[in-house]
Design a protein around this nucleic acid. Structure first.
Length: 571
RNA sequence: GGGCCUAUAAUCUAGCCUGGAUAGGGUACCCGCCUUCGGAGCGGGAUUUCGCAGGUUCGAAUCCUGCUAGGCUCACCA
């Protein structure tokens, strides 16, 4: 097998271009605009500078001079560009042979692959005083698909979750329950039940701002291990976890290990005190411990321990870094956290660096999700609740399924609605660049047409339908010459890019490249579909096209599986 | 005020790292396409000073500088 990518082309060209190294050539090679049916292009501008000839002329000369390698169909000069068209046969052979492993062809044939490593990914790390919201959905989807993508590419990935289940915010919910809860048991999803008291507290605080003092009393009681307070805390946290469990299940996420802030928040102290002893950190006038980050890191200084000796959020995160290393002996630790904490993570990593913890750490920072009205504020209850939106998507999908297939069995309808609804939600979120903010407008965002998950699923189902109808078997024994339609060649071209896309995602964590790629592929397929009939009286042609669409189906499936979207054979 | 980030048509978005072929898509809008494999689809049309102003370059949405607007952040909160 041969991988036809920029490297291959560069290697080939380097025999002819003495002026450049192979790497330089590779960097020059680009992917031509979509409507041109060439896979790769070499622009001759740089060469023109050296040779003092027009790039057009150079392209033309190279075209004549170059000897066609066996994996290329044609090399053609177009203006200042030298364009390369790949052969269909090697591509489809690879896909059909490797099947669901095609996306890791580099690893499979052992060429140009990155060694696999042990990676810990931490997400979504919720607070236990309120249910998960839309921002958590983005977080979970990013964490989940990154995890799946890295696993697919051969890394050993550990998904972990840190429960922020102690602190003043938890005490607020507890306080409200204590005063206005009448010892009620949850009569709604239990994390929502807890969240309602958080909102209640904030309402009451507006009426009487002094109640915050009583909340601090509660926090002190908690820290002093007061039995009654601890019992209440356990009870309410249990409700929160029970609720989260359902949401995690719907989101199809699970963890190799869950950490609890209450277990570890005080353990970071030791690390910090040791750092103080060694003179790495300093004491402020009033006795707090501070890390001076200004000079060495050009960051604002960070307090690591309060003047009363109690822990801060960063104290436990320092400890947790060590704990994760001990638990998983990782090569790299990834934190999936929104970009509002960019500075915090710079500080955390700087502090860890100061005390000699130099492990490879990465903050996968993603943009905020806004509502049309602005930022979500769980304090005021102006959030898009995660369970609610999941339910809404599935209900809408159910309506669509029912509209199309009124006679379908109820159970099937429900299954399809779940798959389609979740596909729509997942795809809607993951198609955006993780770094960018976006506005979630529930009314406009819930759609199954255009650039959506169901659009991709639909392609898959269409292909399945054709394959089922055909009496021919699919194998590599076809007449390759018959795949020559412009739409077919576009498909082949797109299929060939897939492994490179996954390499890029693994390297840059640009998860949106997968949905974006799938859209391009499916658009090419649908366009092919409308101009090329697969089922045909011409058996040879039918066999050739069946193989082609089977390969498309294989790639769609790999892509969707990484995103955590179910494929449907019928929809 | 300092730091970080963002600005692409009515609207949403890809492309920016690594500068190159008429700036790709999607929604909405207009016109077509179900007596050919599934219309959650396809084809065509209209709409853009790629925030503004400079600079570098043969070439800038992409790199640099300044400006404007917006977001996040600058806790002994999490």
């Amino acid at each position: 097998m041969i991988i036809i990518d920029k490297n291959t082309i560069a290697e080939y060209l380097s025999d002819y271009l003495a002026n450049f190294s192979q790497q330089e050539i590779k960097d020059l090679i680009e992917i031509p605009p979509q409507d041109l049916n060439y896979s790769y292009a070499f622009p001759c501008f740089q060469l023109a500078k050296i040779k003092k000839k027009s790039p057009h002329l150079i392209a033309k000369e190279l075209e004549e001079q170059l000897e066609l390698p066996e994996y290329l169909n044609i090399i053609e000069a177009n203006g200042p560009y030298l364009n390369f068209k790949i052969k269909t046969q090697p591509i489809l052979e690879q896909i059909f042979t490797l099947k669901e492993k095609y996306g890791r062809i580099y690893e499979e044939i052992g060429k140009g692959q990155i060694p696999s490593s042990r990676i810990v990914i931490e997400y979504p790390s919720p607070n236990t005083n309120k249910p998960l919201h839309f921002g958590h959905i983005r977080n979970m989807l990013l964490g989940r698909s990154l995890s799946r993508c890295l696993k697919y590419k051969g890394d050993l990935v550990f998904d972990v979750n840190l429960n922020n289940e102690r602190g003043i915010h938890i005490c607020k919910s507890m306080y409200a329950y204590k005063n206005w809860g009448n010892n009620k048991e949850p009569d709604i999803k239990s994390d929502h039940f807890v969240g309602a008291f958080y909102v209640k507290y904030n309402e009451m605080e507006k009426v009487d701002s002094k109640i915050i003092e009583e909340v601090y009393d509660l926090l002190r009681l908690w820290e002093a291990n007061d039995v009654e307070t601890r019992e209440l805390w356990k009870k309410m946290n249990f409700w929160a976890y029970e609720g989260f469990k359902e949401t995690y299940k719907a989101m199809k996420i699970s963890f190799d290990k869950e950490y609890f802030e209450s277990d570890i928040f005080w353990k970071g102290k030791e690390k910090v005190l040791k750092g103080l002893e060694r003179g790495i950190f300093n004491k402020t006038d009033d006795g707090a411990i501070i890390a001076h980050l200004k000079e060495k890191f050009n960051l604002p200084d960070k307090i690591l321990l309060r003047k009363d000796g109690t822990s801060l959020y960063i104290t436990q995160d320092i400890y947790l870094a060590y704990q994760k290393k001990e638990d998983f002996d990782y090569d790299k630790s990834i934190y999936v956290v929104a970009n509002e904490q960019d500075l915090y993570f710079k500080q955390l990593f700087a502090v860890l660096d100061m005390i000699g913890f130099k492990e490879d750490k990465f903050h996968l920072s993603y943009g905020m999700v806004y509502l049309p009205e602005g930022k979500m504020k769980s304090r005021e209850g102006t959030i898009v609740d995660a369970d609610n939106i999941i339910e809404k998507m599935q209900a809408l999908a159910y309506k669509e399924v029912t509209k199309r297939y009124p006679k379908l069995k109820e159970k099937l309808k429900k299954e399809r609605a779940t798959a389609i609804g979740m596909a729509a939600l997942t795809f809607f979120i993951l198609k955006f660049n993780p770094k960018s903010d976006f506005v979630f407008n529930p009314k406009e965002s819930i759609t199954f047409e255009g650039e959506t998950g169901p659009y991709i699923q639909y392609c898959y189902a269409r292909i399945e339908s054709i394959i089922t109808k055909s009496k021919n078997t699919i194998d590599l024994n076809i007449n390759w010459e018959l795949i020559n339609h412009e739409k077919e060649l576009t498909l082949v071209k797109q299929l060939n890019y897939f492994p490179e896309i996954l390499n890029s995602v693994r390297k840059n964590y640009t998860l949106h490249q997968i949905p974006q790629y799938l859209l391009t592929l499916c658009q090419a397929f649908n366009s092919f579909y409308s101009s090329c009939q697969v089922l045909s009286s011409d058996d040879e042609l039918e066999k050739a096209r069946l193989l082609l669409i089977k390969c498309v189906q294989i790639v769609i499936k790999i892509g969707l599986q990484i995103l955590g979207i179910d494929v449907l054979e019928q929809m």
